[in-house]
């Protein structure tokens, strides 16, 4: 069965204040990076999984994201897949 490496990125919904992002943005400004705007901080999760095809792998990762990796009340997620074997 093919193997996939999934990279799942979880971020707070755009409408929700990301206080970590704000704090980092202020720090970047104070370092002189005054051109920086809209810093958002999220989670980067990688995992390997076996799946018969890419669509199944995508569906399984979406289920994982909805049930555990992200909190759908406040977070969005994206899934990137790469076939590794």
């Amino acid at each position: 069965m093919p193997q996939y490496r999934a990279t799942i990125t979880v971020t707070l919904r755009p409408a929700i204040l990301d206080v970590q992002g704000k704090t980092v943005e202020h720090a970047l400004h104070s370092l002189g990076f005054s051109e920086v705007r809209h810093v958002r901080i999220g989670k980067h999760i990688t995992l390997d999984l076996d799946a018969p095809d890419e669509q199944t792998a995508q569906e399984r990762c979406a289920q994982m994201s909805q049930q555990l990796l992200a909190n759908p009340v406040v977070e969005d997620y994206t899934i990137a897949l790469e076939e590794t074997a």
Binding site: L12, I16, L17, V19, K22, T23, N71, V73, V74
Partner: peptide, 17 residues
């Protein structure tokens, strides 16, 4: 309780970080 869906909403990092 919010994570379990027994209460609505979520608790986020304090606004003052």
């Amino acid at each position: 309780l919010t994570e379990a869906g027994l209460l609505p909403g979520a608790l986020l990092r304090n606004a003052q970080q």
